[in-house]
Nucleic acid binder design. Structure first.
Lengths: 136, 136, 136, 136
DNA sequence: GTGGTCTAGACCACT
DNA sequence: GTGGTCTAGACCACG
């Protein structure tokens, strides 16, 4: 039945996602200054209003705050950032499980397939002497 | 840098994905007859040309074949279907790993987080006497 | 020292307040349909985007919800409405107390002055045979 | 119907309000000398003409008077000040009652809600050993 | 230079 | 007709 065609996330929502990601990964560190609305707008080739809207969402979710005439800053509340990070991770996990289940794989199978893929890549990297794997 | 935004997948591509999924899950079994172009077009509220294009893609990838005057059928070559299935799965796995790495998680962490989520849900289902988990 | 001049609430915020009030008073009853964005925009002589923004705020606060292509409706969750009502009342109370304290009146004085004003008006109304006072 | 939006009070009117408040609270005592126009203008970061206009309003309402070459003074007529004070208070009372009635509360309810709020805060302050309540 | 608000007008998808 | 999104461009306040 589900023959509806998902339209993509609106630009402002995609912006929210990207910014959120940069915050939870520390690319925009806690308390750090964010790029200005106009700056981001030019860089991303979108209208400043669109950027503004994305920032508004982040602000009302408590991840960033505004100093008038000075700029926007990442929250200092690291626990809030941690919360956001875990929510993001949970969403990705949910998406992965849903996709695999839609293909008929059980959760256990989803895990072992993932592990196999990782192992396989590691072997390949060993041969090549590469190592792309070192994050937390 | 990557400040570009995803636009919609064209409808025909979304159709390809759905049909592929139905084939690899066996909802459209190997050798089975597929719904007619017009049938699908009405069902999905889409132009028949769009359906036609989706079918063409599937045919050139070898997953379906056409018997003139009779209709379109899923390939009998189960290994081809299995290949497609693994490619699909691989894509999802890649997406999941990429998302988790983008958040700063290692592959190992990505696995354990996935396992935790599954375990946690299973416990919850036990309490509720539910069991949503039985696929292959 | 507080020589900063408060600018007024932006229009969209004023709209939020008015709509909220109409909801908590039941002028827009629970589950009832709200005027369309365009309708309100014409009526209030503001841009549809401004109305849209006000509605967005109400929606993210859970007081209204949207049925695509049909319109926007007041939530059916009467407890949510009751909550909003009490928050509104609390804000007015806070404002009154602050104003009176700024003039040097104690809380007790603020109460008795209020009571006197009410009593005085009631006497006047008795003479006139008017009665403007009957709400819950 | 009343879909009109409050625009900003002109700055001079806001100044009038603030000065009036300082007079009725005794911060500027009866007969006392007021700051000079230029002084106030700098302090409030406002054009001297604006301050001048505010003073004019206060003078024509009888709350202050001017001694040429010497400056402006708060009136000695304490009953005039008392009148002003009561008018201010009456305005706040009217605003509060109007707001509560607009939400569907009776005058009696408006009083008890106010009392409850005060009582509740007092309890909280007792626990904390705080006491913010001591004005006239 | 910063953010915030508003308007006008357009286009989309859904029914 | 409904809501939703986006752009372009303007104006304001703060400093």
């Amino acid at each position: 039945m589900p023959w509806d065609f998902a339209d993509n996330l609106p630009i402002y929502a995609q912006l929210v996602d990207r910014l959120k990601q940069r915050i939870v990964t520390g690319e925009y560190p806690p308390g750090g200054k964010l790029p200005s609305v106009r700056e981001l707008a030019t860089e991303a080739a979108v209208n400043p209003n669109t950027v503004q809207r994305a920032f508004s969402e982040l602000e009302s979710s408590g991840l960033i705050y505004t100093l008038r005439t000075s700029g926007k800053y990442v929250t200092d509340d690291e626990s809030a950032i941690e919360d956001a990070k875990q929510q993001l991770a949970a969403a990705h996990i949910r998406a992965y499980r849903a996709a695999m289940r839609a293909m008929g794989y059980s959760d256990e199978r989803a895990v072992t397939l993932l592990q196999n893929a990782i192992e396989k890549e590691n072997e390949k990297e060993e041969e090549e002497g590469t190592d792309a794997n070192s994050a937390m």
